[in-house]
């Protein structure tokens, strides 16, 4: 098992944000974490790579205890793409080179530079490698952040809303790159997503959070109209168009606010 989490709990000022989270994820699988705003999706992601320290529970990567690892060691195993990233003035090459930081002792070695070059080329970012990140478009920026996470040579990718603020083409491009990386390199990924359609299209496993607890977990069959209604408070129909699974909301306000 690539990643196994049991009994994870996280409190924020005595308020329980996450309660008794459990999860099993195999190599090559993409897990979509779904739920309304404030359900604890981002917190969950940050607990996995210990940006936030959960209370109790265990997180194991390849059977090894993540909670007792050093920061550098975690970063060599998990690449994290945060939701809101600060404005970066670094050039693209340097921004991606930062992904090698967990490996760099004093200076960047030839191997580090080669990994950056390869990653940039794979993601078609090589033509803008010397430009400051702050001058890029939203889609390019997101790809740079993803490239940095991949340059960490992780086993596990953690992505927090990688497609928010992106147009349709860029959404598909970024998710496509994640999909290719996970399947091609034999990684696993945990992705927080607002867009259920994107989740259905790219993910193998689904975890629906409600009020900090696991509501539903499983493969595509776990994502039922009932589960979505219970988690989001919106009635939907699930269908298929030209082989792609889709979800369509029926009513916007089933008595509860609509988020997500």
């Amino acid at each position: 098992m690539m990643l196994s989490i049991a009994g994870l709990q996280f409190n924020y000022n005595s308020h329980a944000v996450l309660r008794d989270i459990h999860l099993e994820l195999k190599q090559g699988q993409i897990l979509a974490v779904l739920g309304v705003n404030g359900a604890g999706k981002s917190t969950f992601l940050k607990c996995i790579n210990r940006i936030l320290r959960g209370k109790g529970g265990s997180i194991r990567l390849h059977g090894e205890d993540v909670l007792s690892m050093k920061g550098d060691e975690i970063a060599r195993h998990m690449g994290y793409v945060p939701q809101r990233y600060g404005e970066e003035e670094l050039a693209v090459f340097d921004a991606v080179l930062l992904g090698r930081k967990p490996y760099i002792k004093w200076k960047a070695e030839e191997r580090d530079l080669q990994i950056v070059e390869t990653t940039l080329k794979q993601m078609a970012l090589d033509s803008i490698a010397m430009r400051p990140v702050s001058t890029l478009s939203g889609g390019e920026m997101q790809k740079v952040i993803l490239a940095r996470a991949l340059a960490q040579e992780p086993d596990l990718l953690l992505l927090d809303e990688p497609t928010s603020n992106l147009d349709l083409k860029n959404q598909l491009e970024v998710m496509g790159l994640v999909h290719t990386a996970v399947k091609g390199r034999g990684l696993s990924a945990v992705i927080c997503l607002h867009d259920i359609n994107l989740a259905l299209r790219y993910a193998d496993r689904f975890l629906m959070l409600k009020d900090g607890r696991v509501h539903t977990q499983g493969d595509r069959t776990a994502v039922t109209p009932e589960a979505i209604h219970q988690v989001y408070g919106v009635r939907v129909v699930l269908g298929e168009v030209q082989g792609y699974p889709i979800v369509v909301a029926l009513n916007g306000n089933g008595g509860k606010p609509v988020n997500g």
Partner: peptide
């Protein structure tokens, strides 16, 4: 210097690559 570069890219980014 690497830690400063990481921090200049945002706190979450820095933590994600193992910066204290």
């Amino acid at each position: 210097r690497w830690n400063l570069n990481a921090l200049s890219s945002g706190e979450d980014v820095a933590k994600g690559i193992g910066v204290e």
